[in-house]
Design a protein around this nucleic acid. Sequence first.
DNA 1: GTGAAAGCGCTAACAT
DNA 2: ATGTTAGCGCTTTCAC
Lengths: 361, 361
Amino acid sequence: MSGDEAGAIGHPAEGEATMADVAALAEVSPATVSRYLQGKRVRDAERVAAAVEQLQYRPNQAARGLRSRTTGAVAVVVRDIGNPYAASLVAGIQSVAGDLGFPLYLAGGVDHLDEIVDNISPRVDAIVCAATLDRAVLDALRRARKPTVLVEFEPAGEEHEFDVVVVDNAAGAEAAVGALIDLGHRSIGVVAGPDGVSVARERLEGAEAAVEKAREGVTLAVERTDFSFAGGRVATGRLLDREEPPTAIFACNNLTAIGTLQCIQDRRIPVPEQLSFIGFDPFAHPDLVCPAPPSTVDRPEEAQGALAMRLLEGRMSGRGAARPRRIVLETTLVLRGSTGAPPDRRADHAGAARRRHHLDG
Amino acid sequence: MSGDEAGAIGHPAEGEATMADVAALAEVSPATVSRYLQGKRVRDAERVAAAVEQLQYRPNQAARGLRSRTTGAVAVVVRDIGNPYAASLVAGIQSVAGDLGFPLYLAGGVDHLDEIVDNISPRVDAIVCAATLDRAVLDALRRARKPTVLVEFEPAGEEHEFDVVVVDNAAGAEAAVGALIDLGHRSIGVVAGPDGVSVARERLEGAEAAVEKAREGVTLAVERTDFSFAGGRVATGRLLDREEPPTAIFACNNLTAIGTLQCIQDRRIPVPEQLSFIGFDPFAHPDLVCPAPPSTVDRPEEAQGALAMRLLEGRMSGRGAARPRRIVLETTLVLRGSTGAPPDRRADHAGAARRRHHLDG
DNA sequence: GTGAAAGCGCTAACAT
DNA sequence: ATGTTAGCGCTTTCAC
């Protein structure tokens, strides 16, 4: 395919033009073309550029990778791309990876994540991992020996050498529970996550911190879940079945929040009149949610992804501190219709509701 | 790194073992190892297997690709991974790609999709494209000269050579509008999509077909949108502002459906008492949606993705018909609380509603 | 700054 | 069925 006549004609009959073709057409050596492509100064840059353009030359990534041991690609690891949080994160990563010219591998699956990481890691220069981490996955990440950034999930109580981009989960939870306390709630239910998951622990700790700061007789009723949709539903049922059910519920992630709302819906509990609600993680369209638009602790998901990708880019190009970096982003508490005063403090609120109703009619 | 002492020790000091290392340890030629790895029959298979295991040998994909001109990877092209439909589809593709051992490139972005396809195509053996298609994207797909399957979106009125996995959009829309007609609706609003998008056209045609079949005085009020969220909201407003507003609305995709519901919510229109609603595409949690759980025409998104990937696998391994295949899946109409009889036929329904209310209280 | 030459790790002819 | 050989397209010494 490469050869004399190809250069002369300007169009290798079939298949891609090679660097040798470009070199021949530009009347330089392949080495010069290679240098030109790497952005180095070259005497006949214009002629080379013209040849590249004329032949529609595209470097062969396999050959380049074989020689230089790079791939020019990045992997993003998530357990379930169907989770809106993961999808937004990936969207954020994708947008900056695209700008940087890095194709993105999507590696995922609920199980065997360690094997998946092992399979993908030779194909990439760097990894973004936004999945709950167990020992096996962590080991796979280490085996990769590639720049890696952990997004949102950190290994449970363990030293590690990776960069990290997280949100301040504890502060977010504290703000949420604090807001409920300020409204007068004294018994607050928490739909928590697994103890082994970093974000679950932090959010629970944040909730507890808010209670401690209040220093009044505020009690927290905690139900653990697996952070699933169904788990949230069951846990909420348990909370509401207690002797003295809470007047407010804080659900610690997006899936359990759905479960909580479904349970509330099933039981036709007036929100926020009888029960207030705050969830962690944004809803796509809160204004369409029953029984009331849910208050949420929102994270900047796309920004988080974008930041992770930029961090990685820095590592790959050798810039950045040698030490692992840890970036903590802030959450935002958005109070919506699902949050109000507890029943025993609602006199004035009920009046306000009536007044609003009048205005509507 | 490869060489005599490596084989003897069994552990190349650093970096990966090469095929030569394996061959030396197993006392066969590299070619035999290569054949073994490709699943061909080899005399000393056990010894080779042992050597592979002992050295933790992982083939170098770059070298393999350079030689064999394959990549072992697949690309999935979507415009916006944040769209739940796209995310589900990708999940379906991912699950079978994982089983087949194909890493997945996620290629996407709203703009410049043709360039993105050009960039990704040399890195993959096959492409799944689930994005609206314009001339530029289509050309990029053709330039790739790789097995390609189009999911959901087909080029607007144009011959093409690609495999296709779609749902029967027209039948789905016809079922939805037919159900509204059967309930007694005579004026039905349609929030349609852009004329250039195949699914938009088909869904509108399906709606029209239902009206024709009815042969009574049923009229369709059509508002075009760009299939966006905001577009759906505006279009719904226009429908409701008409002289004789429709008693039911059919929204032709998931984004416009959200917009429609928001508009309905804004105007506090009772659903389904005064206005019925059906959308195209599933909602993640329909029971939590206000003002009423939306009826929807559901597609088997994950199955669609899985099927596309299997089709591709067949093409890559040379199996399958030479001619392009076209697979059409069925949709499912799910009627929920957002759909009922029109106001002028609600006498009995209102009674039913009252009765239900009594039972609750 | 440039060109010549070597070689990354693998697969595919080819001859045996 | 096996080994030998060549070379995929590129980057990177090295000498100039």
